[in-house]
Amino acid sequence: MMNTSKNQEVNVPIGSIISGKWNQKQYLILRELGSGATGTVYLAKYDQSKVAVKVSRDTLSITSEVNVLKHLSKVQGKTLGPSFIEMDDWVTSSGTVPFYVMEYVQGESLFVFMRQRKDEWFGILLLQLLGDLAELHNAGWVFGDLKPDNLLISGPPPKIRWLDVGGTTMVGRAVKEYTEFFDRGFWGMGSRRAEPSYDLFAVGMIIMNYAYPKRFDKKEGGWTQLKKLIDRNRILGKYRPILYKVFHGQYQNAIDMRQDLLELYSGKSAAKTTNTPTGKPAAQAYQQSQSGRAGRTQQKKIKKRRHFMETVLIFIFLFVFYVVYLMGQTL
């Protein structure tokens, strides 16, 4: 009944068939999608369609997770997390293994997606994320373990989706699953009580992570360290007022933060900076592509110059040799 925690991982070889004891459905395991603290997620085939199957030895946490997924699919309107399909037990020779099946969300993780896109996409995805968070919060839940790895960009058209809802917690309870870098408790800037401002802090840290792709270690911690890092970074310049507010817990809900971001991306910045009507990010992007083109022509020029230098050098060498040869002859 009470066992000490053992390795929760269950290794399911590719090509095996997981069959449920209660619902009698069979899933063909295609490949591993990822594994976390509570179990391993596999891509599987059921009836010609692809699904994601999470397998774990830890009945308790997997059951908790299913509860969350079910609640989320009850949130009306948008699909917030991956939609839940079913939960079952797989009877194997080495014991019963609980598993659950959910929708397979296909896409790229946030920062992989951003690698090939221009800056303004990041803003759009943030707006989408905050909109979804607002709905989740209104339904009485907090995401908890919010981080780039848990965000997937599906589409086209690109749309931000949540991948792992294992940390999702009822408002008012304690957040149990989180990642230190994105956790305000870790930075000494608040509790781990599930409230909208907890998620918004993590959104702030996602912006920080965007500016510091390698992240950073906790040194003195707290606002002192974060403030330094914000003020020092060029990308974060425009986000500064929003980051100041969010790290001080001054946004009561996701809508307020979204509103500030929306203003940042549209009206205000256009007036401040360039004469292009599309606003700052687009102007920047334009400049970037311009400089890209300029860069290429410059490279060609450098190549030409190098050829020229080579010829000159060869002539000089030949001349010197000739002079030495002549001197040798005369001596």
């Binding site: 209660w22 009945t59 308790l60 059951t63 908790s64 299913v66 509860n67 079910k70 079913e86 939960m87 079952d88 037990d89 609980p98």
Partner: peptide
């Protein structure tokens, strides 16, 4: 069955 188990787990949580 998984359905009932979920309800019990809510109590545990």
């Amino acid at each position: 069955p998984p359905e009932k188990r979920g309800q019990v787990m809510e109590v545990v949580d």
